[in-house]
Design a binder for these strands. Structure first.
Lengths: 242, 242
DNA sequence: ATAACATACTTGTTTAAACAAGTCAATAGC
DNA sequence: GCTATTGACTTGTTTAAACAAGTATGTTAT
C-alpha cells in the first residue's frame, strides 16, 4: 500500500515529536534543510508541516521557523481522536473493549428522525443500540442509525465486533468525513438501565454524521459516555476575520 | 487590509454555500471552471477548497467533483466555533452578552498549576474568575490564567469588556492556535453560587490553552457552561492509517 | 446486447520557480 | 557608542507544468 510522500514525511515528523526528538518549544529543521533530509520539494514539506499544525503539534512563525507546541498528555480518561472506531480508541487508550447489542431493528426515517439525524424521509435504516464495555465496566451507550442501502448484510455478529472493520475491510467502503456535535445531557432511564453510572446522573454525548467516499451520509451515531471516562480534544487555528 | 487570494475565494465559496447558492449534495464547479471564474491558478483554488473541506462544508470525490455536505444548523444552543471571543460567539448566536468579574488576583505558578494549565513553574500569572451572562442569565463561569509578562496593563475594565479585543486591537497581539479539551463535570459550590443552574447539577467544560504568534502559551481558560446552552461542533476527516 | 476500449473529463500528487515579507545579526557610517 | 543598512536567513503566496488515477460516456468490435 504505497502511501504518498507527504504522508510519510508527516508521519515521520509526528513520531519524532511524540517521541520527544523534537521537544516542546523546539524548532523543526528549516524547510530548506528538510528538503535535503527527505529529498523532496518545498511544497511537499510544507504540506506535511501544515498537517502537523492542524493537529496542534506545531505552529509556524513567519520569518523564524516552525515551533513544536505538542505536550504529551496524561492518560487516565478515554480520549476521542479523529475518526476512530471504538476498537481503535480502546486500543489507543490501553483498555480492553467489548460490546453488547441490546437493540437491532429496521425503521423508516420520518420527519422527526430527519431533523435529528439528517436521514432523508423515507430512507430505510437500521436502528441499533449497543452497550460498550471498557475493562468490563459499562461506560458507553451507543445508538447507531445506518442506511440499509449502503450496509445490506448487517448481522448481530458484525455489530458485536466492529462496524467500521466490516465497512472498510469487507465492503471496501471508505469513511471520509465525520461531523460531530458535543453536548452534556441528563441520563435517561435507558442510560441508567444499561450503564454503570457510578452515581452520575448526566453524560457526555457525541452525536455524529458520517460520510463515505461517495459523499453519502450513511451513518448517524450518538455515543453517550460516563463523564469521568470521557475527554474530547480539539485544536483550532484563528482565521483572519471580517 | 489586503487579504490573500485564497482567503477571498474561500470566503466567497463559503458564503455561497451558507447562502444555499450551492446546496447540500450539489457539486461545486470543477477546478478548471473556477480557475476561469476567479482568474487564478489551480493550486489557489485547491487551497480554498481544502479549507472548506476542513470546515466540513464540502467533500472531494476523486474523479467526480467536490460535493457540498453543509447543512444549516438549528440555532437554539450556544455553539462553539473556531477561536472566538465570548463577544463574537454571542453575536453569532444572537444573544446579548455581559460580564461580571468576581475575582482578579496575581499568583505564581507552582507544580500543581503547571500540571493543570501548562504554565511553567515560577511564572507570574493573573488569576481571573468571571461570570458570563447571555440575555441576562448567568450561564457561563470562566476561569482565566494569563501570563503577566505578555499582558502587562490588565484592568478590571478590560476584563468586563473583552480580553481578546484588548490583546488584538490594543496590544497588537495575534492569537493563532488554541488547544482545547471538552469534558462534562459535576457542578461545584462556586458554580452554584454564581450561575443560574436551573436545576442542573453538572456542566459542560472547555479547557483551553492559547498560543500567540510567537508560539508562546500565554493563556489558560476554563469555561464552564450550563449544558442546555452548550454545543460544540467539530469535523474530522479520516487519515489513512497503518 | 454486451463487453472492451478509447477518451474526455474529474481530482490527487509532486516538482520548480519567482517573489513577498518577517527576523536576526553583522557591518558600516555617524 | 549608537543607529541605520545590508544581507542572509526564515516562512508565506502564487503561478505553471507534468503526470497519476478515478469516473463517466461514448464508440467499436465481438
Amino acid at each position: 500500500m504505497p502511501k504518498s510522500k507527504f504522508e510519510l514525511i508527516y508521519k515521520e515528523l509526528k513520531q519524532k515529536i511524540e517521541g520527544l526528538d523534537y521537544k516542546y518549544r523546539d524548532f523543526l529543521p528549516s524547510e530548506n534543510i528538510m528538503i535535503d533530509m527527505f529529498s523532496c520539494s518545498r511544497n511537499t514539506i510544507r504540506r506535511a508541516v501544515s498537517m502537523l499544525a492542524e493537529d496542534g503539534y506545531v505552529q509556524s512563525l513567519h520569518g523564524k521557523g516552525v515551533r513544536v507546541i505538542y505536550q504529551p498528555v496524561g492518560q487516565n480518561s478515554f480520549t476521542i481522536g479523529g475518526i476512530e472506531s471504538f476498537k481503535e480508541s480502546a486500543a489507543r487508550n490501553n483498555k480492553t473493549p467489548s460490546t453488547k447489542v441490546v437493540q437491532f431493528t429496521e425503521i423508516i426515517a420520518d420527519q422527526r428522525i430527519y431533523e435529528k439525524t439528517g436521514f432523508i424521509v423515507g430512507s430505510e435504516v437500521y436502528y441499533i443500540q449497543r452497550v460498550r464495555y471498557l475493562d468490563g465496566k459499562a461506560l458507553i451507550f451507543d445508538i447507531n442509525l445506518l442506511l440499509k442501502a449502503v450496509v445490506p448484510g448487517l448481522t448481530k455478529e458484525v455489530l458485536e465486533a466492529s462496524i467500521y472493520d466490516y465497512l472498510e475491510n469487507v465492503l471496501g467502503m471508505q469513511i471520509v468525513t465525520s461531523k460531530r456535535k458535543m453536548t452534556a445531557e441528563r441520563a435517561t432511564q435507558i442510560d441508567e438501565k444499561y450503564l454503570d453510572l457510578n452515581g452520575y446522573n448526566f453524560l457526555a454525548v457525541i452525536s455524529s454524521q458520517t460520510f463515505n467516499s461517495d459523499g453519502i451520509m450513511f451513518e448517524y451515531t450518538q455515543s453517550r459516555h460516563r463523564p469521568d471516562y470521557f475527554c474530547f480534544y480539539d485544536t483550532a487555528t484563528r482565521k483572519k476575520s471580517p
